[in-house]
Structure formats: C-alpha cells, structure tokens
Amino acid sequence: MQTVGLPIVVLLAAVTVVGQSIQGDWHGALDVENDAPLRLALHVTLENSGLFKATLDSVDEDGTALPVDSFTANASAVRFEMKDIGGTYEGKIAAGGSSITGSWKQNGGTWPLTWERGGDPADMIELFDGKKAAQKGRSYVQSFYESKFSDLWAKLSPVMRQALVTADYLTKLRAQVQQRFGAEVNIVEENVKSDDALQIYNRIAKFENFPGKVKFQVAFNARGMVTKFSIRPVD
C-alpha cells in the first residue's frame, strides 16, 4: 500500500504546485499587423477534479467569458485551445510564474502573445470618451466622403474587417451613396450616445439628390476602433 500511495501523493503535490502557479487572472495584448493591439484577459481556475478551467475576454471586441475548450499546464509550459474560433496558444512560464511567453495561432497565422499576472486590460489605455468619439466620427465621415479608404480600413476592428473581407467594400459603398444621395449639403443633427462599452457617433444630414434625411452612424470601442457603421435614410 505504501509503494502505491507514494507516487499518488507526489502527483497530487505536483498538481497543487502547478495549479497555484498558473491559476488566477492574466492580461496580454495581441499585436496584429497594421492594427492596434487587442487587449485580452485570461481567467484560470483549478477544479476539484484537478483539471483546469479557463475563459478569455477580448476587451476591444466586447467579448467576455469566451470558453476555452482545453487547458493544460505543467511547471514550465501552458497550452490551451478555443475550437469555436480555431485558436491555439502555447507558451512558457517564466521563473517565478509572473509571466507566460508564447504564440497565438489562428487561421494559419501566428502572433507573439505574452501574458502577465493580474491587472485589468481595460485600464491599460486612456478611455475613448464621447468627446473623442465626436471628433473621430467627423473625421471618419469626412474620410469616407473623400474616398480615403485605406485610412478607413485601418480604423476598422478585426471583426469588422473579417466581415467586410477587403477594403473594396468601402469603395462600393461610397459609390452607392454618391449615386443615391449625392453630396452632403448640411448637417441637421449630430450627437454621441453611449451603449455599454461603445461610443456611437450619429450624424443626420441633408443631401443634394435625396428629399429626406440620411443618418450616418459610427460605433467606436474603448480603443477607438470602428466596430459598426451604417448609412441609411431616416423618417
């Protein structure tokens, strides 16, 4: 009995040490080419079964408690997978357990990603408030009117760019707006409204070839990236 019991005790002790070193809250930022870093938060707990459970927050894409399907760790390495988005992370735990350095792989791409203990990634940058949303909203609309599509594309969130596929969408949309409405004549109303973590710039204007009013709406996340925009007639 003693011979069998000793390895079990050692194994349980090892699991406890690893659990203590990895569980808790972590924050990091994913540097995507030609884009602002995406702030991420990782939350790890150790279940009574000895298995790890984790969730991930994508702060700038308004994603919270995204499920991690599998999470494994030993004294020096971490690996987890998120099947819904086709993402995998592998990293090495620093001596002392204060950070994890590794790579995030998704859709054929690989990006460096370092996690550090604690901290709220939402506090890592200056808040994008209503005043900034008004300034950026006006700038965004003006760039759209002037067909500066490369500038506009760089300001879209990764989710928006994935949905639109290429900047050609903006080119086609600008042509449609010009054909249907013509040029903007004057601004009737302009405001910014908050919706949870979003700042939404609203611009209602009159156009030369349209008898009614047209509303241009641009939604910004906490980093000032565009998560939604629309152009439509209003009553």
Score class of each variant (00 low, 15 high):
Ala122Ser: 03
Asp35Gly: 03
Lys105Met: 05
Arg79Leu: 11
Asp69Gly: 00
Ala167Met: 15
Lys206Gly: 14
Val59Gln: 06
Ile93Lys: 07
Asn209Tyr: 06
Thr55Glu: 14
Leu156Asp: 05
Asn186Tyr: 15
Phe128His: 06
Tyr140Lys: 14
Phe210Pro: 01
Asp235Arg: 12
Ser76Cys: 04
Ile187Asn: 11
Gly28Cys: 14
Phe210Thr: 08
Phe128Gln: 11
Lys215Gln: 06
Leu51Ile: 05
Val32Pro: 08
Trp111Arg: 15
Ile93Phe: 13
Val15Thr: 13
Pro121Arg: 15
Met82Leu: 15
Leu40Ser: 04
Ile200His: 03
Asp196Ser: 08
Gln178Phe: 12
Ser143Asp: 13
Ser70Met: 01
Thr3Ile: 05
Thr72Ser: 09
Gln199Leu: 02
Lys83Asn: 05
Leu156Thr: 12
Thr16Cys: 13
Ala219Cys: 04
Phe216Asp: 10
Asp25Asn: 08
Gln217Val: 14
Leu152His: 04
Ala183Glu: 11
Glu126Leu: 01
Thr166Val: 10
Leu56His: 05
Asp129Trp: 01
Gln179Met: 05
Pro37Phe: 02
Ala54Asn: 00
Lys213Pro: 05
Arg138His: 09
Leu173Ile: 02
Leu127Asp: 09
Lys53Val: 12
Pro67Met: 11
Gln23Met: 10
Val9Ala: 07
Trp111Cys: 13
Thr72Asp: 09
Asn209Leu: 02
Val214Glu: 06
Met82Val: 15
Thr16Glu: 10
Val10Ala: 05
Lys131Asn: 07
Asn202Trp: 12
Gln20Thr: 13
Leu6Val: 08
Asn107Leu: 12
Gly87Phe: 06
Ser194Ala: 11
Ile93Gly: 09
Leu156Pro: 14
Pro233Cys: 14
Asp69Leu: 07
Ala13His: 03
Val78Tyr: 03
Leu12Trp: 13
Leu40Phe: 00
Thr72Glu: 11
Val192Trp: 09
Val188Thr: 12
Gln179Cys: 01
Ala54Leu: 04
Asn221Asp: 13
Gln178Lys: 08
Phe216Trp: 14
Asp35Val: 07
Asp35Tyr: 08
Ser147Trp: 13
Val9Gly: 00
Leu6Arg: 12
Ser76Gln: 06
Gln135Phe: 03
Leu198Lys: 05
Lys193His: 07
Phe207Gly: 09
Asp57Phe: 08
Ser139Gly: 12
Val10Leu: 08
Gly182Trp: 01
Ile100Gly: 00
Lys92Pro: 07
Asp69Val: 06
Trp115Thr: 03
Gly119Thr: 13
Ala13Ile: 07
Leu66Arg: 11
Gly109Cys: 04
Lys193Asn: 04
Gly137Lys: 04
His27Arg: 01
Val159Phe: 03
Ala73Leu: 07
Glu90Met: 13
Asp57Thr: 09
Leu11Asn: 13
Pro158Arg: 03
Leu46Tyr: 00
Gly63Asp: 10
Val68Thr: 09
Glu90Ala: 13
Phe216Cys: 11
Gly102Arg: 02
Gln2Cys: 10
Glu90Tyr: 12
Ala167Asp: 15
Gln142Pro: 02
